[in-house]
């Protein structure tokens, strides 16, 4: 893998994104803002403070985390799959000096980049809502990149093994939705049976939420363990997207 050739793939995606962002960029703001208003203000008016924070303030960092990883997941499931099969963009790229490993690395880094773009956007939104206490929130950017990378890896692994595009429903319903609900975004897991928190410890979104929450309120120390967890997971998962895609594309 050559990072420069992976960057060529990234550049292609960036060009396409910057051509189309005007039509989709507003939506980046819309969805998290809706969640904040509906859950934070609507539901929040019936909910007592959590860990001494008003409900809207409690969920805001979690919305940053979840929206950012969903951006990577959409990109590296549907986006990657369409480029690989229907558009045959992979075939075209693989006829150039860019090899499969470069291409997959480009997809992964682009997925993580999408996470960062969404993460920053929403971080700005919650800052405007006055829900951020600490300038340390700037440090979530590299953490979101790590989180995005993990979800890009998982998505591409799934992409490499699915028989068809319809199968992505399984990924969303059985994997992403539970993560979205049980990663401590909307309620602390200590109110749930112990088992839920134990399982959550092994899922990436849980840790990204911890990191975002810690940095939003200005404590680096409580984020450290989860940052290390994210880094280790990025590394552990790394070989699989490459191996499985090679198996799928080079029959």
């Amino acid at each position: 893998m050559r990072i420069k050739r992976a960057f060529r793939v990234w550049q292609r995606h960036w060009l396409v994104y910057t051509k189309l962002y005007k039509t989709s960029f507003a939506l980046n703001f819309a969805e998290p803002a809706l969640y904040l208003v509906a859950m934070g203000l609507g539901l929040g008016s019936f909910v007592k403070d959590i860990h001494g924070q008003p409900y809207i303030k409690y969920i805001a960092p979690g919305i940053v985390a979840s929206s950012s990883v969903f951006a990577a997941v959409y990109e590296c499931t549907y986006g990657t799959y369409i480029r690989m099969t229907f558009q045959k963009t992979f075939d075209a790229i693989l006829a150039t000096p860019v090899n499969l490993n470069d291409l997959i690395a480009g997809e992964l880094i682009w997925g993580a980049t999408k996470s960062v773009i969404f993460g920053i956007t929403i971080a700005i939104v919650i800052t405007l809502f006055g829900l951020v206490e600490s300038p340390l929130i700037i440090l979530v950017i590299p953490c979101i990149f790590l989180g995005g990378l993990i979800f890009a890896e998982l998505s591409i692994i799934f992409c490499a093994i699915v028989p068809g595009i319809d199968s992505f429903s399984y990924f969303y319903t059985l994997f992403m939705t539970p993560l979205f609900l049980f990663s401590g975004i909307f309620f602390p897991l200590d109110s749930m049976p112990r088992l839920v928190a134990d399982i959550a410890f092994f899922t990436p979104l849980y840790h990204l939420v911890i990191v975002c929450r810690a940095l939003t309120s200005g404590s680096v120390a409580s984020a450290l363990g989860s940052i290390i967890w994210l880094i280790v997971t990025v590394v552990v998962l790394a070989p699989f997207p490459f191996k499985l895609m090679r198996k799928r594309i080079f029959v």
């Binding site: 050739r5 550049q11 292609r12 396409v16 963009t89 075209a92 150039t96 000096p97 860019v98």
Partner: peptide, 21 residues
């Protein structure tokens, strides 16, 4: 046909050229 449908005609060539540095 595996032209890049997300790009215009000339962008197809330029982006492709970029893969060749």
């Amino acid at each position: 046909n595996n032209l890049d449908p997300d790009l215009s005609v000339i962008e197809n060539l330029i982006v492709y050229g970029r893969y060749f540095d």
